[in-house]
């Protein structure tokens, strides 16, 4: 049996001489690991190899419990402009990282695929890739059932006062009241009111183009989203967003 699907390359490793081990996030099969034998030979059925963030059409032989075998991959028209700017490219790789770490193998999630493909398309034209990535992360977390609680304490359900800085705990799953913050003892992240408001509007589905956060609020909101993403998946060692400042700082020119 051979299957056809469309996917985004979210991980790529060299495998023996000329082969590649790819992780695709596909429209029909969710996250999919597959080997492309001889992919890096120019005349292979994989066109000399595919790259991270390529959108590909793939024909593969499923091997339940093993590595799927890619028979053929062709690169589809990609995400124009994504690679022209450092902040766009890093945000695009942030999308790949969330898909890699926060989804399950061969569990179809067509809405997540559509969200990722739309985000990558918009990132290619975005002047504020950091906001676009935050919008993606917010919707992605909602899709996997991890939307943060923002209206009341995620730990006790009590009041988490508005209009003043509030603690945020990814382990509790949202903002926490002062009593719970004190009880947890650990140094919690703090969200200023504007950062909390930003998380709210992103959770409500406001498009990135319609929110205008200041830099500090965006940084706090993204740190909170990154903390939540880090609680996901099999890779608790997620290196953290050491690239945040390169994604969020506005480019020197352009």
């Amino acid at each position: 049996m051979i299957l056809r699907t469309e996917g985004i390359v979210i991980e790529r490793r060299e495998w023996s001489e000329a082969s590649q081990l790819l992780t695709l996030f596909t429209a029909t099969h969710g996250r999919l690991h597959a080997i492309a034998k001889g992919a890096r030979r120019p005349k292979s059925r994989h066109g000399g190899g595919v790259d991270l963030l390529d959108r590909v059409q793939a024909l593969f032989y499923p091997r339940p419990g093993g590595l799927n075998l890619l028979a053929e991959t062709s690169v589809l028209p990609g995400f124009r402009g994504l690679r022209a700017r450092l902040d766009r490219l890093l945000a695009g790789l942030g999308v790949a990282e969330a898909l890699r770490d926060g989804t399950r193998d061969e569990e179809p999630a067509p809405e997540v695929y559509a969200l990722a493909a739309e985000t990558l398309g918009r990132l290619g034209e975005s002047d504020r890739p950091g906001v676009e990535l935050a919008a993606f992360e917010s919707r992605f977390l909602a899709a996997v059932g991890l939307a943060p609680r923002l209206d009341a304490c995620a730990s006790c359900g009590g009041e988490a006062p508005e209009g003043e800085p509030v603690g945020f705990s990814a382990d509790s799953g949202g903002v926490v009241c002062r009593a719970c913050a004190a009880e947890s003892g650990a140094a919690l992240r703090t969200l200023r009111p504007a950062a909390r408001a930003l998380l709210r509007s992103l959770a409500a589905g406001t498009p990135a183009a319609r929110v205008r956060p200041d830099a500090a609020s965006l940084r706090q909101a993204r740190a909170a989203l990154t903390d939540l993403l880090r609680t996901l998946g099999e890779r608790p060692s997620r290196p953290g967003d050491r690239f945040a400042r390169w994604i969020e700082q506005s480019p020197a020119r352009g």
Binding site: D54, P77, G78, R80, G81, A84, G124, R253, G254
Partner: peptide, 13 residues
């Protein structure tokens, strides 16, 4: 190479 979004040329687009 300049940081104006014009280069490096995006691929496959």
């Amino acid at each position: 190479l300049r940081e104006d979004g014009a280069s490096p040329a995006a691929r496959g687009n």
